[in-house]
Design a binder for these strands. Structure first.
Lengths: 250, 250
DNA sequence: TCCATGAACGACCACCGTTCTATATTGGAA
DNA sequence: TTCCAATATAGAACGGTGGTCGTTCATGGA
């Protein structure tokens, strides 16, 4: 890195102040950068302030606290998720496309699933996403309750699956290699169990460990969508027998 | 509290040493106690050591580190989950019973879902549970891949749902009240959105906010089980068309 | 009785999030 | 142009965290 040379004070125009002011946007952008590069544990207020060349206490004038910062980061990346306008006859495929887009977003931002897993996206982009998601789900003819809950279930599924995938590659950065290592180790372990006591684990050691993340994801997606189109929950066994639409509001 | 009187050294039988030794079991039990009473954030090594009337450094002779301690706590509570032996003709109901038992476990131990969400239960009780779960799922006639993944999907679902429920009651202890408060606030907010821009959110404000945790859980359970019995994923659209059993191992 | 072993422990280390207070900077009014 | 009030900035400090290290000490075996 070249040595920093102080700028002579006489050539420094009035405009374009060299001291870029701290703004919430700049903080959130930088936070996302650290997250992508170094993960959630590295994203401390101090590390963030250092990146912004300021003191860590200064951040609190713009973001409230760390948790709120994570809210903002989450809402920011939500802009990357594409939720299609409904087209007739392509409902199931469009739902899958939406979930795949959400998954791509998670996989392209390290540890974001850890942030999202216990957060309800109520920022502006989150609300927009909910609206568009509901629009798509209802286009499939789902009754209100199922549309309302289906969106939750799908996004929870995608988040949890991304979380599992990223937590398997814990600690250091490793792409496919370490994941394969782990799968191999686990496979060996399961195969080594006493077959008399663990017949199913021994028998299924292959399928359990050979499912890669992509296959797991597609499989889960199909299961949930199949369950949704089956109109599950029409009659539940806890007393409520009728399937009529729930009253519009509580 | 009565004053502590030192025991005279002459009456102290050889057996039953009054100084209860630190063991891993005692540590894990105590950790679970703190977890139940005060939550995960309160479960620090120092707090735990204090409860055991010792120094926090002493714990590391028995548990490795905090993460491993949480592994052990997780495995311990897994003993509370009941996984039924398969009975003919009751498959779907038995799967539900298993999931409900798992959920009861989560709800009776504060913050346990937060511990479980990114952990693969590979302790002794976890392995036992996996075996019994696979045994039950396969009794339903699920093909290998679906049985192997179905268990994962179900447990992920139960955990995520428990996590959502417990994170809604964040911070202070609140049973139904605060949850209802939050739902009411959210309902009001959704209803207040501009209907032209957010027609679906406004229309579904009722169903979205009126679903209580129990109903959400049962609904999700039915969706997933319906998807499983539909044998989803027989033909997937990523090139693989045949549904033949995957090779026994990789 | 002596000693080796391993558990227990206090002092540290390098951090963390957050708050308080003092200072610097700035835009606008006089 | 000068001055002031409002605001942004940042340093110090607080009370915590998980984890390590070297030392002390009690206990069981020889």
């Amino acid at each position: 890195m070249p040595q920093e040379i102080p700028v002579p004070p006489w050539r420094r125009p009035k405009k374009a102040p060299p001291r870029m002011p701290l703004t919430q946007d700049r903080i959130v952008d930088t936070a996302l950068g650290i997250l992508d590069a170094e993960g959630l544990d590295a994203l401390s207020m101090r590390r963030l302030a250092q990146e912004l060349k300021t003191g860590h206490a200064s951040l609190y004038a713009h973001v409230g606290n760390r948790d709120e910062l994570l809210d903002l980061v989450f809402d920011l990346v939500l802009t990357e998720v594409e939720i299609p306008e409904p087209e007739p006859g392509r409902w199931a495929e469009q739902v899958k496309e939406m979930c795949r887009s959400l998954r791509r977003m998670f996989l392209s931002h390290r540890d974001l699933a850890r942030i999202a897993i216990d957060r309800i996206p109520l920022g502006p982009n989150g609300i927009m996403g909910m609206e568009r998601t509901l629009n798509l789900l209802r286009a499939g003819g789902l009754r209100d309750e199922l549309a309302a809950y289906g969106g939750d279930l799908l996004s929870t599924f995608v988040t949890a699956e991304a979380l599992e995938q990223s937590s398997r590659h814990s600690g250091a950065e490793q792409n496919r290699e370490q994941a394969g290592m782990f799968a191999d180790q686990l496979h060996g372990y399961l195969k080594s169990l006493p077959a008399a006591q663990f017949p199913n684990l021994v028998h299924l050691a292959g399928p359990i460990t050979s499912l890669d993340s992509d296959r797991r994801f597609e499989l889960g997606l199909e299961i949930i969508i199949a369950g949704l189109v089956a109109g599950a929950g029409d009659g539940v066994d806890d007393g409520v027998r009728t399937a009529g639409p729930t009253p519009a509001e509580s």
